[in-house]
């Protein structure tokens, strides 16, 4: 510890926009760091001073409870100062553009923006225009990288590895940024990935992402080690994707009978919020295969890791410190 030169963590770059851009090494570095950070949330003082001189804005232009609260806890536990803004009650309602909002926030001296927005690509749009670190907390139907990472961490916790596992993403893949982040992250770490859902809720070219397609949930359960059950995004469906919720549950619902008929000890994830009795039945969601609440716990650790790894110092300052002697 005293003076031996230490190695720095694999750099993540300025922003976290999606798992598609991350290498295997970068993803593993986030997961390993998150693994260490879990312990901070059970300390008597659940707070470390690592980000104490950082100011972070959570800009949530779309509703969220879990992700916003999870980011806020992560930021506070890393010692950062935080502000949260949402669409209602902000100047966004007065017609201010995204970039103007962000530039005004930057003028008050911020270091990072966590953004949730209904438009795909909004996080990248912002990242290219402001010097602060940008973390995508869900942009339209594009990606939700921290959800993908916490799913990876939860699977790895329970199965000890990702490589070689068969993971099936079930349900509304079409509208799901969670699905896209999962597919990229899982494949980067060497899992086999499949999707299962009604044809109307699968993207037309989904096979091009290198995934297997199952039309029947029973076949998916027969094949998979892990099911990631997506929320049916009722608010994004104006009309016509499915005949009725009851029929969806009857054909694609993850029910206890189906889970118990499967050949393997399934692991069942759900990004929340759940539509109980639609895509997942209560006795599965609360049952022994479910790791849904551990996903939530892991979410805080993963976000702490992302904040920590993105908050990196400036190269020239690092050089100055090295010249002055390593502590």
């Amino acid at each position: 510890m005293a003076q031996a030169p230490e190695q720095t963590a694999p750099a993540l770059g300025k922003d976290l926009l999606g798992l598609e851009e991350l290498s295997r090494g970068q993803i593993l570095s986030i997961l390993d760091t998150a693994e260490r950070f879990k312990e901070i949330s059970v300390r008597p003082v659940k707070k470390v001073p690592a980000l104490r001189n950082r100011t972070i804005v959570n800009a949530f232009f779309e509703n969220s409870t879990r992700t916003r609260v999870s980011f806020e806890f992560a930021e506070k536990r890393m010692g950062a100062d935080t502000v949260s803004i949402s669409t209602s009650g902000s100047s966004v309602q007065k017609g201010e553009t995204l970039v103007d909002t962000a530039r005004n926030l930057e003028a008050m001296g911020i270091d990072m923006v966590v953004i949730r927005h209904s438009s795909s690509g909004s996080a990248r749009f912002l990242a290219e225009r402001i010097p602060s670190n940008v973390i995508n907390a869900g942009d339209g139907k594009h990606e939700h990288p921290t959800q993908g990472l916490l799913d990876l961490l939860t699977i790895r916790d329970h199965r000890g590895r990702i490589e070689g596992l068969k993971v099936c993403i079930v349900g509304d893949v079409l509208h799901s940024r969670v699905a896209r982040s999962n597919i990229h992250g899982l494949k980067r770490l060497g899992a086999q990935v499949a999707v299962c859902g009604p044809a109307t809720l699968l993207p037309a070219a989904v096979a091009e992402l290198g995934v297997t397609v199952f039309r029947r949930i029973e076949e998916a359960i027969e094949w998979a080690d892990v099911l990631n059950v997506l929320r049916l995004q009722l608010e994004r469906m104006k009309s016509g994707f499915i005949p009725s919720l009851r029929e969806y549950n009857r054909v694609f619902g993850v029910t206890r009978a189906r889970v118990e008929a499967g050949p393997r000890d399934l692991l069942i994830l759900h990004p929340g919020p759940m539509n109980r009795g639609v895509e997942i039945d209560s006795d599965v969601a609360d049952g022994p295969h479910s790791v849904i609440l551990q996903q939530v716990t892991n979410g805080v650790a993963v976000r702490m890791a992302v904040l920590y790894l993105l908050s990196g110092g400036r190269a020239e300052q690092a050089e100055a410190v090295k010249q002055g002697g390593d502590p």
């Binding site: 510890m1 230490e6 190695q7 720095t8 963590a9 570095s29 390993d32 760091t33 260490r36 950070f37 312990e39 901070i40 470390v48 001073p49 690592a50 980000l51 001189n53 950082r54 890393m78 920590y308 790894l309 908050s311 990196g312 110092g313 400036r314 300052q317 690092a318 100055a320 410190v321 090295k322 502590p327």
Partner: peptide, 23 residues
Amino acid sequence: LDITLYRDDLMVVGPRPVVGRTE
């Protein structure tokens, strides 16, 4: 103790790999 997160130069030299647990 792993003191990495308590270093006073953390934000200058950049994140270090967190090598050990505090137990």
